[in-house]
Amino acid sequence: MRFRFVLAEIVHGFRRNASMIGAVILVTFVSLSAVGAALMLQIEVDRVKGEWYDKVEVSIYLCPDDPVDQGNCAGGPVTADQMRAVSDRLKSAEMEPYVEQIYEQTAQSVYDEYLERYGGTYLGEQITVEFFGPIIHVSLKDPDKFQVVTDAVSTMPGVLQAVDQSQLFDTLFDLLAKVRLAALAVAGVLALAAILLITTTIRLSALSRRRETGIMRLVGASNLFIQLPFMLEGAVAALLGSVLAVGTLWGVTRFWLSDWVEQNFTLIQGSVNAMDALVVAPWLVVAAVVLAGVSSALTLRRFTRV
């Protein structure tokens, strides 16, 4: 009886307040989408970091056949002895606390990888294998200690350049962090708007039902029973907003973003996943309930007191 009564009250409130309820749904939808996007971005960043920080931190480029006037390449292409010397240095006891693993890649294999990516293009046709030297990839025990490794080998003969690859990612991560911050700021402002809107909606709803609530008070309905329909009205609207947000995040990631990332960022392929939308979904729903709860608490105390 009570449940049906409350349900009927909510449906009635929705009908009477349709445009306000619509506004609440839309604002919570956009606000929670921004929150969700920020959360998902964090998940992606963590995943890319996890995959790549461990794989390659420092790449040591050795001198190619084609003469270059940089690094320690004045003596021409790297020799087998020089290469072994660099390897031995990396495997030495001195480097042992920093170096996890090393992997040598021949000039030919570097060239092949290059062709794979740029083979059909103008750049691919201009460049020949002579432009590439072998690379020694080094994975680190502590990614932050790359400096020790690069310092150790960068002055050795036959070394063109020792590059901390994570620096390349850091630029990307930096950008993503800024995007995330912007999304959170937007989400914050919109959350405030959502609270104000829900507050106003509940207030209007309570005013338009003053006679009902007045009678309820007179015949001794409990506070909770009087306030429940209003609270649920706000909560249901906010929940609908959160469901829309989850759906949108999922759809955008699934049908648009992951393809786009696959095509444009070869390095982080497969890291953007629509399932992440479902990972953040519970948080968005909780956020919606909190939004509605705060708003109800702000309003109802004043408008439906016994």
Partner: peptide
């Protein structure tokens, strides 16, 4: 009936 509903009387 409203007066009975809102104090939770059964149907």
């Amino acid at each position: 009936a409203f007066a009975m509903q809102v104090i939770g009387r059964p149907r």
